[in-house]
Amino acid sequence: EKTLKIVADSEEEAEALAKELAEKYNLEVTIERNPEEEGKYVITIKIKP
């Protein structure tokens, strides 16, 4: 299993990107607040072998 993390500037941007990735590529995608940067969100994508 591989994990890729993407940082987005807004929750709306994160949700839109996560939804597109999940639907288009059938990936497991989660969104959470970035504890290191206020106002940023981390999109985590898990790629199963």
Rank of each mutant, 00 (worst) to 15 (best):
E1V: 06
E1Y: 05
E1M: 04
T3E: 15
T3H: 06
T3G: 05
T3K: 04
T3C: 15
L4M: 12
L4A: 06
L4Q: 12
L4T: 09
L4S: 05
L4P: 02
K5P: 06
K5D: 06
K5W: 15
K5V: 15
K5L: 14
K5A: 13
I6L: 09
I6K: 02
I6G: 02
I6T: 02
V7L: 11
V7Q: 12
V7F: 15
A8F: 04
A8S: 07
A8H: 01
A8D: 00
A8C: 13
A8T: 12
D9E: 09
D9L: 03
D9T: 05
S10C: 03
S10K: 02
S10Q: 01
S10R: 01
S10F: 02
S10T: 11
E11P: 06
E11C: 07
E11D: 03
E11H: 08
E12I: 09
E12P: 05
E12R: 07
E13G: 03
E13F: 08
E13P: 00
E13N: 04
A14D: 00
E15R: 11
E15K: 10
A16P: 00
A16Q: 09
A16M: 07
A16V: 06
L17W: 03
L17E: 01
L17C: 10
L17I: 12
L17Y: 03
L17P: 00
A18T: 04
A18D: 00
A18I: 13
A18M: 11
K19D: 03
K19C: 02
E20N: 14
E20W: 14
E20G: 08
E20Q: 13
E20Y: 15
E20C: 15
L21V: 06
L21Y: 13
L21H: 02
L21G: 00
A22D: 02
A22I: 14
A22F: 13
A22W: 14
A22C: 11
E23G: 08
K24E: 07
K24Q: 08
K24H: 06
K24Y: 08
K24A: 09
K24T: 11
Y25D: 06
Y25F: 03
Y25C: 15
Y25S: 05
Y25K: 02
N26W: 14
L27Q: 14
L27G: 15
L27F: 14
L27P: 01
L27R: 10
E28N: 10
E28Q: 10
E28D: 07
V29W: 13
V29A: 06
T30E: 05
T30Y: 09
T30R: 04
I31R: 01
I31S: 01
I31C: 04
I31T: 02
E32K: 03
E32I: 07
E32Q: 05
E32S: 05
E32R: 02
R33C: 05
R33L: 11
N34M: 13
N34K: 06
N34V: 08
N34T: 07
N34L: 14
P35W: 08
P35A: 09
P35Q: 10
P35F: 12
P35K: 10
P35C: 05
E36K: 12
E36A: 07
E37S: 09
E37R: 08
E37L: 12
E38K: 11
E38A: 12
G39D: 04
G39Q: 05
K40S: 08
K40Y: 03
K40M: 04
K40H: 06
K40P: 03
Y41R: 01
Y41M: 03
Y41A: 01
Y41G: 00
Y41I: 03
Y41D: 00
Y41S: 01
Y41V: 04
Y41E: 00
V42M: 04
V42Y: 03
I43M: 02
I43Y: 01
I43G: 00
I43E: 00
T44I: 11
T44L: 10
T44D: 01
T44Y: 13
T44G: 01
I45A: 13
I45K: 00
I45L: 06
I45F: 04
I45M: 05
K46R: 06
I47H: 04
I47T: 04
K48T: 13
K48Q: 14
K48E: 11
P49L: 13
P49D: 11
P49H: 11
P49V: 13
P49R: 01
